[in-house]
Design a protein around this nucleic acid. Sequence first.
DNA 1: TGTATGACTTGATACGACTCGG
DNA 2: CCGAGTCGTATCAAGTCATACA
Length: 536
Amino acid sequence: MEEEIWKWWEEEPKYEDGIKWTSLRHNGPAFPPPYERLPDTIKLYYNGELVTLNSEAEEVASLYAKMLDHELTRDETFRKNFFTDWKDTMSPEVKEVFAALDQCDFREMAAYYKRKKTNEKVQQEFGYFFLDGHKQRIGNYNISPPGLFVGRNSPNRGKLKKKILPEDVTINCSEKEIPEPPPGHRWGQVQHNPAVIWLASWKESSPGKLKYMMPHAGSKLMGEMDWKKYEVARSLKHHRDQIQEQSRKDWDSEDKSLRQRGVVLYLIDKFAFRVGNKTKDGMTANTSGCCSLRVKHVTLHEDHQGETKKVEFNFMAKSSIPYKKMVPVEEKVFRNLQQFKEKGERGEADLFDQVNPQVLHTYLKGLMKGLTTKVFRTHIACITMEQQLKNLTHHHIKNKVSSFNEANRKVAELCNHQRTKTELHGSELQDKIEASRDELSLLKKKLERATQGSNTEELKNDVKRKEDELRKLDEKSRMEENKQLNLNSSKLYYIDPRIILAWCIKWRVPVEEIYTEAQRDKFAWAIDMNNENFEF
DNA sequence: TGTATGACTTGATACGACTCGG
DNA sequence: CCGAGTCGTATCAAGTCATACA
């Protein structure tokens, strides 16, 4: 807890572009303890028969057993991927025995792991690193034990992520401060690259992506970049009009690729779309961003409910979160979209076949230093928040925090940040509300019929109680609806903390009521600046 | 010029700690 | 005291984007 507070934001920039540090010292990542074999009493059964596995195959089996409650173990792709990778760890003779995963009984193992509590102690010596002599927290210093890939919609779900050994790890540090590898091991590589901020890296076996040990969000290296991000997003205000003007011109261009560029930029600038890079076929879930929209993802409504032209978007966005919105657009955008849709009868064709993220970025780079498509998303989010905070607070001064959340919610909605887990509660709650409503009308009828009877008072009370109950349930339902939105992502990654701080100071709201401890750590630079007059 | 890779950046969720009505 | 719900952080998957590569 007693950490030195390094106000790096008050220092003059020390490094030229591309250099991040002079001295970098750390102890390398912490490795998980080795696998402990099952006691003799715990067995795996195949087709009712006891099977003895070698240590590696048993370990991989344990990964599946631990997940037995998880719905993914009923998912066909997950099971298939797991089974393939699992069999690869078995000896040839044993492998022969395993013809189908259905025949494997993991229940005894699963029960064993449920009983067994894992209480691994956090090792203090690995949690920190020294940056130019200052002690800083590391974000992720534990290397995960082997596991099964759990991407929700990923074709790789169920595949084995193999054990990571020191020999797989590259260390990045100062020249004379190489951490000691675990006994009996060596580092895969050691490098001294001050152009990057990571401390260690390794490649996960599935799906073969590089992983990094990175500084904590509150560290200088991360905070500095966050700050810079908001400064870039902020400077977009000086160029936005001009960019919009150019897009307008492009809508009328003879050149189809320019028309497409103009429309794509309009969508990104107006609805905060992600750029939509190409995804590798068969390696990732089939999701889209702006450039990767397909014809089938947009429906055009010429005269929707007597209103102006509207576009209906319906596609899977990042992390397979559905994007479903109906929005008004300008006439010329509408006409262009109409034309771009023409060639793809079956709807599988790319909507914007003449633009891609590279083209877009080359163009944007020429308009403003540091401008990329995601800058628009940040910019719009910040503007929205600032505006919302201004609007809302006049009316809701009584409850400042909830009016803050209201503004935050608008940003989350803009960014389509959702949570998906609460469905079950939602429908259960709806059932409850239905039931409660029925009971209430029944009670009311009874009351009418009873008119002057002796038990009128009692019935009246019943009605009152039911009404109260229903009101509470309705309120809860509204809260549940709000929970479909995820406010955290926008708060952490999109809203300039200085906007929030200025609001806190103005309305005398303690920062602690808005940001949690970890968030205050991440935004320490903005909190310390303490600028009431900040304008984005 | 397009594709692959590396280095961040953004995203939802898992999970343990805490809280609260019963 | 207890189980359900909530909160906060850690975790790890899935994006963006610059650069290396062919």
